[in-house]
Amino acid sequence: MYSDKVMEHFANPRNVGEIVDADGIGKVGNPQCGDVMWLYIKVKDNIITDIKFKTFGCGAAIATSSMITELARGKTIEEAKKISRSDVADQLGGLPAVKMHCSNLAADALKEAIKDYEAKQAAKGKPA
């Protein structure tokens, strides 16, 4: 039921972990299915230089988490903001219909992490 690409990311998830001195943290959870994802980003010169995740959830939730870290790393904040839920699903060769809504939280987590980063920057008085 999962694509080979989903299974590959599930079996060998990229960038698992936390970033202690993260510049932005996104924590999202889906109360419908019980998936929870925490995403950490490190930003330098407006570019996402490091990104890590921790996820509680099914195979699709773990695979989408892993995929978003690959898609976002090295991107500018503006580019990263444009990564959508369907980009993540497409890059994984599609997700089962029942998982599209529930376990496809990664793009939301990235948006939350960027929002957190921008808020912290604004608090420091720098332009976001």
Binding site: P31, C33, G34, V36, F56
Partner: peptide
């Protein structure tokens, strides 16, 4: 468990997503 954000030191709190209401 290494992938999970939750652990004995940091259990899932109420309203952290998995309450599935």
């Amino acid at each position: 468990r290494e992938i999970s954000p939750f652990s004995a030191e940091r259990p899932m709190g109420p309203g952290e997503g998995a309450s599935c209401v």
